[in-house]
């Protein structure tokens, strides 16, 4: 590979005369050059694809590091101090007290929300009357700020895990429920005919037609619900938990440990980002892979 033009779109033109040379076999290095430029451009493009989104976050971190370095201001601790707290608070052994309780409550509450949201939304989506009856009350529940519900939830379910799981479920269930109703109600008439023409049972119809057809919309609701659920999780932990990110934050606040409160906020942010990222990955690669691929094909 004598002259492989890196990321040069005209690289092809440069290398293509090689195989046409009369001295055939002796020109083999040139022949490999005919494909190399394309591969290099593609790899470069792929690498850019990965790097570009990281530029801004990395830049911000760097700016943060540079401006806070050696800072003695009480409310603006140096980044290394924050990162040290982050490591002490959310890595190694501390994971079991500060991170895992939050994560498992989130998983339980969110799982409950998905079950209830899809389970209740499905029949409501099938019946026009159901929507009319439940619509307004759903809108009211959905619009109530979840933080306002912390006191009544604690009053009813007590301080601790039960309240947390239920509040997370409550806050996450509405977007999932509404998107399930929409998705199920919006079934293409063509698919309905397919069910009847194929003599499918209601159960098979649910599993093979209705649910997959509604899945893209349901997942849109699930994505909306993640953010809300994490908000609910941190909020109620700050009030009433015995462990978890929220408690970590409250403790930091009460003891005026500013670096630790930055660390807690950072941990909550990263957790939220990671959870929704994982969900989206599952959705794109597995649950709705057909949907995204089919969309791509249409373009």
């Amino acid at each position: 590979m004598r002259h492989v033009p890196l990321a040069d779109p005209r690289g092809l033109a440069d290398a293509s005369p090689a195989p046409a040379r009369p001295d055939g076999d002796s020109a083999r290095p040139g022949a490999s050059g005919t494909t190399a430029p394309v591969i290099v451009t593609r790899t470069t493009r792929r690498a850019l694809h990965l790097i570009v989104p990281l530029v801004l976050p990395a830049g911000l971190l760097l700016a943060w590091y540079l401006t806070s370095r050696g800072s003695t201001a009480l409310y603006f601790p140096p980044l290394p101090a924050i990162l040290a707290d982050l490591r002490d608070g959310f890595a190694g052994g501390a994971v079991t007290t500060n991170l895992m309780p939050s994560l498992s409550a989130l998983a339980q509450g969110f799982g409950l929300a998905v079950l209830v949201g899809v389970g209740v939304g499905y029949p409501l989506g099938l019946t026009r009357g159901g929507r009319a009856v439940f619509g307004p009350i759903l809108d009211l529940f959905r619009s109530t700020p979840v933080i306002a519900l912390i006191p009544p939830f604690i009053a009813i379910f007590g301080i601790g895990r039960l309240s947390e799981v239920l509040l997370i479920a409550w806050s996450a269930v509405w977007p999932i429920l509404l998107s399930t109703i929409d998705g199920v109600a919006g079934l293409e008439p063509g698919f309905r005919d397919t069910r009847r023409a194929l003599r499918m049972s209601r159960w098979l119809e649910f599993r093979l037609i209705r649910l997959p057809a509604a899945a893209p919309r349901i997942m849109a609701g699930v994505n909306t619900a993640t953010g809300i659920a994490i908000t609910a999780m941190v909020a109620i932990e700050m009030f009433s938990a015995s462990q978890g990110i929220g408690l970590y934050l409250t403790r930091a606040q009460r003891s005026f440990d500013i670096a630790a409160s930055f660390a807690g906020a950072l941990a909550a942010g990263v957790l939220g980002y990671a959870v929704s990222g994982v969900l989206r990955l599952i959705e794109r690669r597995w649950l709705l892979a057909w949907h995204y691929e089919a969309q791509k094909g249409k373009r």
Partner: peptide
Amino acid sequence: GGTPRHMSVVFQDYSRSLLPW
């Protein structure tokens, strides 16, 4: 409530009749 078993229907719009998933 459906098509008798020895009958089959072919619709015009295959994209609504074949399940994309």
